[in-house]
Simulated scan of single mutants.
Amino acid sequence: MKRRDVLKVLASLPLAGSAGSLFAAPAARSKLLLVFLRGGYDAANLLVPVSSQFYYEARPNIAIARPGPDLNAALPLNADWGLHPVLRDSVHPLFSAGQAAFIPFAGTEDISRSHFETQDAIELGQPAGRGRDFQSGFLNRLVMELNGKDAIAFTDRLPLILQGRAQVPNAALRAAARTNVDARQSSLIASMYQGTDLEQQVNDGFHLRDELMQEMGGIMGREMEAANRNAISTRGFESVARRIATLMRDRYNIGFVDVGGWDTHVGEGGASGLLAGRLDALGRGLAAFAQEMGGAWRDTVTVVISEFGRTFRENGNRGTDHGHGTVYWVLGGSVRGGRIAGEQVRVEQAMLFQDRDYPVLNEYRAVLGGLFARMYGLRSAQLERVFTGVKARDIGLV
């Protein structure tokens, strides 16, 4: 999608006033799409701490350059933060239009750094230190509080987050291809460049990938695939997002979709490369969703989360490992965007959690509880049933 086309669409959509029209709108009109990035994406290269010299010291090979005339430089958001440049024509126009916000230092209390433990903990949304009820996901509990509001999972199987007493359907969207390029596909791609100036570069690239994966061992490779939990990949996500919008615009009010491929231990890249390609596809999909929602976009909130962020320092394979705090995205026609929301701290070595990760300053249940209260007018007793033992925190997202 071209920047001018996105801006044209945004210009046609009504914006909220300072209070946010979603709060004033009947709950029946409010729509929520939760996008779960499985694998733990590298938030520090999405929302770039451009004022931090430590960031550039910690990432000599994969850092995103400070804002400037170069097209590979971060897109300025404010004095401290920039946005990955591949989102120039998709998410950045939404931010500029006041329809997107980012919440750094967000996440869960879980410190296992395990994809599976943390994904489960987030989807269940239950108090830590107690036995888990795997038949009660927090989105299902929200549906119950909204008297069975129409909800759907755009997944092959009903995810944990939507399991519970409310009956929720799921619809497979497997048109988006899987993340990995297998040996047959690698051979086909290599043959396409045979005899050209790029032949050696392509062959060297596949050889390096195979060498690194072999070096890291089969166990990690299997873990990276398992972390996706059969989620769709970003490839083709734009068309998937349009189909999601068609269903949510006309029928469903709460939706969930998970997108895999974010476990970037090896060859993550910076302004270009593995992570950049996936962020580009994700951004174009989110912009397409906004466009396809049409007038319903003003009553829609899209929240993008992940189980955790990545290590702040790059590793020896020019990638990043499992971390803790991450960055959430909140987009919508009535979102009070154009800003970096929530509690923040200056990005320097002293602020790192266990000297390796972003800390969690914006606990996800408190933040989402505050958002749900604004969107749906939920009372304290209702929020307690969605997120037991958590005090909702309104950070003015809508």
Rank of each mutant, 00 (worst) to 15 (best):
M1F: 12
D5Y: 07
V9N: 07
A11V: 05
S12W: 00
L13A: 10
L13K: 12
L15V: 11
G20Q: 07
S21F: 09
A24W: 14
P26G: 11
V35C: 06
F36W: 08
A44F: 00
L47Q: 04
V48D: 08
S51D: 12
F54N: 04
A63F: 12
A63K: 01
R66N: 02
G68E: 06
P69L: 06
N72R: 15
N72Y: 11
L77N: 08
N78P: 00
H84M: 02
L87R: 07
S90T: 15
S90H: 06
S96Q: 15
G98E: 03
A100Q: 04
A101M: 09
F105C: 11
E109R: 14
I111Y: 00
I111A: 05
T118C: 04
D120N: 13
A121I: 02
F134C: 02
S136V: 03
N140S: 10
R141T: 02
G148P: 08
G148C: 10
T155F: 08
R157S: 14
L160S: 03
I161E: 00
R165M: 11
A166P: 05
A172T: 08
R178C: 05
T179C: 02
V181A: 06
D182L: 06
R184W: 08
S186W: 03
S186R: 15
S187R: 14
I189F: 06
A190K: 12
A190I: 06
Y193C: 10
T196F: 07
L198G: 00
Q200T: 12
Q200P: 03
Q200N: 05
Q200I: 12
V202N: 07
G205E: 12
G205V: 00
R209Q: 10
E211I: 02
E211K: 13
M213D: 13
M216C: 07
G217E: 00
R222Y: 07
E223D: 13
A226Q: 15
N228M: 09
N228D: 15
I232L: 11
F237S: 03
M248W: 06
R249N: 14
R249S: 14
R249L: 04
Y252L: 05
N253G: 15
I254W: 01
F256H: 04
G260Y: 04
T264Q: 08
H265D: 03
H265R: 12
G267N: 15
G267M: 11
E268V: 11
E268T: 06
G269R: 05
L282D: 03
G283P: 02
R284D: 15
R284A: 09
L286V: 04
A288M: 10
Q291V: 13
E292L: 06
A296S: 13
W297F: 15
W297K: 03
W297E: 01
T300S: 08
V301A: 11
V303S: 01
S306M: 01
F308I: 03
E314S: 05
G316M: 07
R318L: 11
R318I: 03
T320R: 12
D321M: 07
H324Y: 15
L331C: 05
R336P: 03
G338Y: 05
A341D: 10
Q349V: 02
A350T: 11
M351N: 07
D357G: 04
Y364H: 11
V367I: 15
A373T: 09
R379S: 13
R379G: 14
A381P: 01
V386F: 00
T388F: 06
V390W: 01
